[in-house]
Design a binder for these strands. Structure first.
Lengths: 343, 343
DNA sequence: AATTAGCACTCGCTTGCTTAGAGTGCTAAT
DNA sequence: ATTAGCACTCTAAGCAAGCGAGTGCTAATT
C-alpha cells in the first residue's frame, strides 16, 4: 500500500514526534512543529484517514494519535532512510572495537556494550554458530594430580577449554594416549559427531583402558557441544528498568527472553541477513510480542555469521538504532574477518 | 535492649504476618491468628509501646503496623532461631550440588541457582579471592599460527586460561622459551607480583627477544589479575521483577549493584564469617540501602573462602532464607574442600 | 475539488466532596 | 494489669462537576 506524499509526511511526523516525546500527537502540535503549510483541520482529515487505514490509533476520543504496529512498519519500510552515524560516533565505535582486537568473543562483547550504551537499551551479541565446524585439534594440559584441561580447536579457529577430573593419578603417558587416539579419531570430523554413542564406541575400543576415559570423554563432548552452539552476550539489562515507556509486563518478558538461552538462540540464530526490524507481534519469539527487536547480522569473510540485536519497546528510535547497528555490524565484520584471515 | 516476653511474641507475630502477607497488621488480626489469650485492646497497648520504642511503624493512623528496620533487626537477633531445612530440601540441595562436582566454579554456580530457585529471589555466589595465591605453573598451548593459549595454575589449584595473539608466526621453540623463562621467574611468586613493572623488566632482560613478548605478557598479567580477583555468579535476576513488594527504585538499585562488578566484589568480599543479615541502611553498599542482604561464607578446609548471598526487599522470609543458605554454605564447603584435598 | 474556519461534541483527567471501614488511643470499669 | 466501649483519624472508593485537549462535521472559501 502506498500513501500520498503529504499523508506520508504527516505519518512520519506523528511517529517521530511520538518516538521523541512518548505522548499522543495532535493536529495542532503537528501544525506547529512541522513545515506543513496547511491548517490543523486539513491535518485532522489526514489523521482521520490514516487512522481508518490502520496506521494510527487514538487511545481515546480527546487524545492525539499514536502509531500502530502497522504504522511503525510502514515508517520503517517506506520512510526511514538509512544514514551513517556521525563521524564522532563512528570514531567512537571503531576505537572501542579495535581496543578488543584479539579474540572474536571480546569484539562481540564490546559491540554489545557499545550498542547498549549508545542507544540506552538492551543489546545482545551472538557468536557465530559452530554447527558445521569440525574438530581441528584437541590438546591436553595437566593441571593437577587428578585434573587436566582439554583444549579444543575447531576448524573455524574457535578455542574452547574444559577441565576434567579423574579418580586416578593422571600420567603424561596417559594424556599422550588420549591425545593421539582422540585426534586420530576426531580430526576433521564434524563437532556433532562427538556424542554419547561415539564416546561409548571409542572407550569400548580400548578395552580395559577405556574404563579410564569417561571423565575425559565427557569433557570432550561438553567442549564440542559448547563449540557447536552459539554464545550470547547481553549488555544493558539494567537499562530496561529505566525505560519509562516499558510496562512491567513487557520488561518481565524481555528479561525472561534474555534469561532463556534457548529462546535467545532460536530467535537470534534464525534472523535473516542484513538489518531487520521486528515490531510487536511480528516477533518470532512470543516473549517479545510487545517489544521491538532490531537485528543485524555480521559476516566473516562475507559469510553470514552471528547477530547483533537491540531490544526495546516498540517506541524505539529506529532511525538512530538502524544507523548505529549497521555501522557496528559492518565494523565487527571487518575486524573479525581480519582476525580469521590471519588465523 | 530486651523486651518483655509477651511483647516479643507480639512483635514476632507482626513481623511474621507481615512477611507472609505484605500488609500492615492490626490488633484484631493478631488476636485471631495467634494464641495470645488477651483482648485486642491489650494488644493495642503493646503495639503502641513497640511503636514508641521504634520497632514498628504505622503507615497512617487507620492502618496496622509494619516492622521498621530496627524491628527486623530485633527479630533477626533475638527471635529467629536457626533451623535446618526439611529433609526433602536438604536432599535436593545435596543432589544438585553433587551433580556439578568437578570444578569449584560449577559448584558455586549451582549453589546460586539453587538458592535463587528455592527462595524465589536474587542469589549471588563468589569464588574465593585468590589474592594471596601464588603462581604454581604456567603452560602454553599453541592454538593457531599466530595464537596461543596460556594456562595458569595457581597454588590454590585454580586454573585460568587466556588466549593471546602475536604479530609473528609462533613456533614451538618460542613457546618453550616462554614456558621455561616464565616459570623460572614466577613459580612460587604471589600473583600480585605479576604486574606492569615486572613485565617490563622481564621483557627487557631478553633484549631483542623481549620485543616478541608483550602480547604474551599481557595475557599472563590478565590471567594473574583475574585469578587474584573473585568471580561473581548471579542467578535469578528475572525474579526481581516478580517481587511484588519491591518498588522500581529498589529494583533498579539492586540491578545496578549486580551490574557493578566492583560494588559486588567490595561488598561480598568484606562480609564477616558465618551467616550475616544486613537490613536496609545497615548495608555497606549504598545501592542496597533499601533492601536486605543475607550472606553466608563458605569455607575451604576450614579457612573462610567465598560468599553466598541473597538479595531482596527487607520483607524477606528470613527464617527460610537463613536455614537454606546455611545448609547450602555448609554443603558447598564440604564439597569444595573435598575437591581441594584431592588436588 | 481541496482547503479551512468554526463549532459542537466526546472523553479523560483533576478536584472536591461524601461515605464506609479499618484501626487506633483513651477512659473508665473490672 | 486488663478490658470493654467509644470517639477519633485517616485511607480508599465512589461520584459529580468542570476543564481542556482534541476531535469530526458542516458550511464557507479558494
Amino acid at each position: 500500500m502506498t500513501i500520498a506524499p503529504r499523508k506520508q509526511k504527516i505519518l512520519a511526523a506523528v511517529i517521530e514526534n511520538y518516538i521523541a516525546c512518548g505522548e499522543p500527537v495532535g493536529s495542532k502540535t503537528l501544525q506547529n512543529s512541522e513545515d506543513l503549510n496547511v491548517s490543523s483541520a486539513t491535518i485532522r482529515n489526514e489523521l482521520a484517514d490514516l487512522t481508518l487505514k490502520g496506521f494510527l490509533i487514538q487511545p481515546h476520543t480527546s487524545a492525539g494519535r499514536i502509531p500502530t504496529e502497522q504504522g511503525y512498519r510502514y515508517y520503517v519500510d517506506n520512510i526511514l532512510e538509512a544514514r551513517e552515524p556521525d563521524d564522532g560516533v563512528k570514531r567512537y565505535i571503531e576505537n572501542k572495537l579495535q581496543s578488543s582486537f584479539d579474540a572474536p568473543e571480546r569484539i562481540l562483547k564490546s559491540a554489545g556494550e557499545i550498542l547498549s550504551e549508545l542507544l540506552s537499551t538492551v543489546a545482545v551479541a551472538t557468536t557465530p554458530p559452530g554447527e558445521d565446524a569440525r574438530v581441528h585439534r584437541i590438546k591436553f594440559v595437566q593441571t593437577g594430580r587428578y585434573t587436566s584441561m582439554l583444549v579444543l580447536i575447531t576448524s573455524s579457529g574457535m578455542v574452547k577449554s574444559r577441565l576434567f577430573r579423574c579418580d586416578f593419578d593422571i600420567t603424561p603417558e596417559m594424556l599422550n594416549v588420549f591425545d593421539r587416539s582422540l585426534n586420530e579419531a576426531l580430526a576433521g570430523r564434524p563437532l556433532s559427531c562427538v556424542n554419547q554413542p561415539f564416546a561409548q564406541t571409542f572407550a569400548a575400543s580400548f578395552g580395559e583402558l577405556g574404563l579410564l576415559m569417561p571423565d575425559m570423554l565427557t569433557a570432550v563432548m561438553d567442549a564440542c557441544f559448547e563449540a557447536s552452539g552459539i554464545n550470547i552476550y547481553t549488555s544493558g539489562t539494567t537499562r530496561l528498568l529505566y525505560q519509562s515507556d516499558l510496562d512491567l509486563v513487557s520488561a518481565r518478558s524481555i528479561l525472561e527472553f534474555l534469561g532463556s538461552e534457548s529462546e535467545c538462540e532460536k530467535t537470534l540464530g534464525n534472523v535473516p541477513d542484513g538489518t531487520n526490524i521486528y515490531i510487536g507481534r511480528e516477533n518470532p519469539s512470543p516473549l517479545l510480542r510487545r517489544s521491538s527487536l532490531i537485528s543485524a547480522r555480521y559476516t566473516i569473510e562475507n559469510q553470514p555469521a552471528g547477530t547483533l540485536a537491540l531490544i526495546g519497546s516498540m517506541r524505539f528510535d529506529y532511525k538512530k538504532a538502524v544507523s548505529i547497528i549497521e555501522f557496528t555490524a559492518k565494523t565487527v565484520s571487518q575486524l573479525i574477518s581480519e582476525l580469521v584471515r590471519k588465523g
